[in-house]
Design a protein around this nucleic acid. Structure first.
Length: 483
RNA sequence: CGCGGGGAAGAGUACCGGUUGCUCGCAAGGCUCAUAACCUUGAGGUAGUGGGUUCGACUCCCACCCCCGCAACCA
């Protein structure tokens, strides 16, 4: 059986329609898993939604629906990204799924408890009645809750705590040695410096009277699991659970920089405590800025991925996210840049190259591929190697650029061989068109992880039979955009 | 205050102790198979400021200035 490659996105919080940031993470994960499948591995891609918490319960109440109805609506929106962006995930896990998710979260809890890593402790904090939740000092203005203009009460309640502090040293060692690989390196350094300062134990549950919308703590009806215990276990519940899991641990957890610490500290600690294997790596991506500014609801500059896809199509959006946003760093979105990328790389690049080669080939009829140009073969092999190295190093923007190197070479090759020139012999002409077709064919294979629909469209124009190629024209892949 | 990232041609970026590479834009030339596309060449940067290390620094060290993130749950 082929090697299994298991990758996850973080699960999206189901309090709203997904924004471009989650689309970025999804597309990155999709490109990586598709690449692994093209390397003959058995790719397993998990995504889903985090649906619990008082925030959602409150939002549902405000919307006049039950929490379940509320998350059903939003989860359906997140799911729609699959069709919109041509994602190839295998499983969509929802934390409100009582059959698939709850038993696993509870099983994990019991395993952690069996290791003696859970204890009850009284937590004292500032409780805002308006929020029906604890607030922190920074939420206060002049000692009052900024949202409700009321001073919070000091309330103490009993919670389950997880002995996170116990595992800091072990995790630090595993990260340092790359047994748990964190990319890019700056993120690894960041988490190491955090671990060096030491970890505090964390609250693992809340009283059910304050937080009822969640997974019940096993054998303690008075408590509901807090986000870590609940949400992080999706990585196991989403691949079959602890009993009959197929893929755990993940080869790659793809996460945003904002939740690195939960995945690089809390999650490994939970797994160590539960005596389960740790993920192989954590790839940390940055955030998308819009016209150079942080995206936020209050500013009102949130970019809707569905709108973009509606206007430009799935592959152009995928292309932009993968090429223009450096994986591992923040990147910027703007319509101007989008159009620039589209015209420069898609219309003038792969789109035009496919059109010129397929037109030449369609006129030439059946072509023999016996006379493969060694320079072409080498260039194709090099491009494959480069793309693979970049993907494995979580440098997706560079992987895309590496694939485009081959397309650029193809244009140069055709210009040099001039198969339209009357002074070129028929034999040379046919040989060069066949080689150009090989470049196009290889390009299509290389870009498949990034632009699956485009790759499929190009493949339609190239029919291979044994050692012959029959090319035919396809429609205009990327009509130039005028702004 | 702390931690982290960054300041380079008109714009956006990469690598690196020893002729600054790339993309877009701009200019000239070529070609006409192709989506006014493609190919070639060129102009344009004293690499934030001030020091230091070195035979030599954009690249290492120190200080300063400016921008931007993070600081327990918005990817």
């Amino acid at each position: 059986m082929a090697k299994t490659f298991y990758i996850t996105t973080a699960i999206a919080y189901a309090n709203a329609s997904p924004h471009i940031g989650f689309a970025l993470e999804s597309v990155q994960a999709d490109a990586i898993v598709r690449a692994h499948r093209s390397w003959k591995e058995d790719g397993y891609f998990l995504t889903g939604t985090d649906e619990h918490g008082s925030k959602i319960a409150r939002a549902a109440t405000a919307a006049g629906v039950t929490p379940q109805e509320f998350v059903d609506t939003n989860a359906a929106e997140v799911r729609k990204l699959k069709e919109a962006l041509n994602l190839s995930w295998n499983t969509f896990i929802r934390t409100s799924d009582r059959k698939a998710h709850w038993p696993v979260a509870q099983d994990l809890w019991r395993r952690i408890e069996a290791s003696g890593d859970l204890y009850k402790k009284t937590y004292e904090g500032l409780y805002c009645v308006g929020h029906e939740a604890f607030v922190t000092q920074k939420d206060l203005v002049d000692g009052k809750c900024a949202d409700h203009q009321k001073a919070p009460e000091v309330v103490s309640e009993e919670n389950w705590f997880f002995k996170l502090s116990k595992y800091g040293t072990e995790i630090e060692a595993k990260i340092k040695s790359d047994e748990l690989l964190i990319l890019p390196e700056t993120r690894k350094n960041e988490i190491l410096s955090l671990l060096k300062e030491g970890l505090d134990d964390i609250s693992f549950s809340r009283p059910s009277k304050d937080l009822s919308w969640g997974v019940p703590v096993p054998d303690d009806a008075s408590q509901t699991m807090y986000v870590w215990a609940d949400a992080l276990s999706n990585y196991i519940s989403g691949c079959g659970g602890t009993v009959r899991w197929t893929a755990h641990p993940a080869d790659v957890h793809l996460v945003g920089k904002d939740i690195l610490r939960f995945h690089a500290a809390i999650w490994p600690a939970m797994l160590l405590s539960a005596k389960l294997p740790l993920p192989r790596s954590i790839f940390v991506h940055g955030h998308i800025l819009v016209n150079g500014e942080k995206m936020s609801k209050s500013v009102g500059n949130v970019v809707d991925p569905f709108e973009l896809v509606k206007q430009y199509g799935a592959d152009p959006v995928r292309y932009y996210l993968l090429r223009e946003i450096p994986s591992g760093n923040d990147g910027d979105f703007s319509v101007e840049k989008f159009i620039e990328r589209y015209n420069g790389d898609l219309a003038n690049g792969i789109g035009n190259f496919a059109a010129r080669v397929l037109t030449l080939g369609a006129q030439a009829g059946e072509l023999s591929v016996v006379a493969e140009d060694p320079a072409v073969a080498k260039k194709i092999a090099d491009a494959r190697t480069h793309v693979r190295e970049k993907i494995e190093g979580f440098r997706l923007h560079e992987a895309v650029a590496a694939a485009w190197e081959l397309i650029k070479f193809g244009d140069q090759y055709v210009n040099e061989k001039k198969p339209w020139d009357k002074t070129v012999s028929e034999e040379d002409k046919r040989a060069s068109i066949a080689n150009a077709a090989l470049i196009l064919e290889a390009s299509a294979q290389l870009i498949e992880p990034f632009l699956p629909a485009t790759a499929a469209a190009i493949a339609q124009g190239i029919v291979r039979k044994d050692r012959t190629l029959q090319l035919s024209k396809i429609g205009n892949l990327f009509p130039r955009l005028t702004k």
